[in-house]
Design a protein around this nucleic acid. Structure first.
Lengths: 192, 192
DNA sequence: GTCTATATGTTGATAGAC
DNA sequence: GTCTATCAACATATAGAC
């Protein structure tokens, strides 16, 4: 656990510290003691800035969801042929995943144990359904072969993109090249 | 949490109960109290049969790894053109994932916090490297386009297959159809 | 804003009666 | 083999001095 820069401490800056720690050890396995030490202050001082562990989780999830829904709102995601909108979303989603890695990772690993987690899972389901809707539209207009099950295809598509969190680490991979690689793998497959 | 059948209790039967619980709430969030209640006995009685929480984890991970490495050892995975071997492994891996869902899920969600977890992560890395080696062979013999990065492609391939644990639930999806869908999505892509 | 000290609950694990 | 009762450790969170 690396020490963070000294204060002033804002909620956002502590959410950042927390998300980094959650990324490494998991949410449940990370204690408030761990987090305060990572921030460079004692546990009590940490509580002076943050109401509790769940607030940190909520802050991180907010940031992840903001990035993802931001992509859906972009012009290129709302206008044009379904397949082209899908291509744009996949590419931008890879970028958001890379930029907001710890936050999105947290979102994708939720189990729904608390009310906050269930709220975030609901929002995430909304996002997935938007993707699934686009795949269905693409199937309807013939861009995607008729024998493809749109529901399964959408899930595999999202699964491929989201699996980046398992191995992508900043600085060790060229993001533009990764964006291209994911787009090709999803739409043209391994054999092209 | 559903109650399991009554005793006699073997380590294997309790690992089964535990893996189911871990699948739903996550390993850390599941207490020994939860597990004993799911098994239908008290926590103390539960400890009479199992040495501790980590033994349950290890038992489950053993089962997952056994299934996956079993696939690698099959004749069709060791003989023939690299691409064909890869196709076979992907198909069989989907089946193993479906059959051993709770165990594989546990394996794929590890963070490496304990020695047991790090051991399992090492074995999992071996498996992934076998896949990566096959993708590289397929690239060398020209089956996969030259502009594909084999390392990235292998990770996206594994990511697509493994993402099944996020949504597949037994009985609600036809496994043979799923096997075909995954193979097509991985090798030919969404647009075919 | 930070600290030491502590309240309060839950966890994994044991002791020992039956 | 199962139980009740309990332990030590650790969790989240708070009180109150400086």
């Amino acid at each position: 656990m690396t020490r963070a820069r000294p204060g002033p401490y804002t909620l956002d800056s502590l959410v950042e510290v927390a998300a980094q720690a959650f990324l490494q050890r998991g949410y449940d396995a990370t204690s408030m003691e761990d987090l305060s030490r990572a921030a460079g202050i004692t546990k009590s001082s940490f509580y002076h800035h943050v109401s509790g562990k769940e607030a940190l989780l909520r802050g991180a999830l907010d940031r992840a969801l903001g990035g993802l829904f931001g992509v859906l709102a972009e012009p290129a995601a709302t206008e044009g042929r379904p397949v082209d909108r899908l291509r744009h979303i996949v590419r931008r989603q890879v970028e958001v995943l890379a930029t907001e890695l710890p936050y999105v990772t947290l979102l994708l690993r939720l189990r729904g144990n608390t009310e906050t987690e269930r709220w975030a899972l609901g929002r995430r389901r909304e996002f997935d359904q938007a993707i699934a809707g686009l795949v269905r539209e693409a199937a309807d207009d013939g861009s995607v072969p008729a024998d493809v099950d749109p529901v399964v295809a959408a899930r595999l598509l999202s699964g491929t993109v989201n699996s980046l969190i398992e191995w992508y680490r900043p600085g060790r991979v060229d993001v533009p090249a990764l964006v291209d690689a994911v787009e090709r793998q999803v739409f043209e497959g391994l054999l092209r």
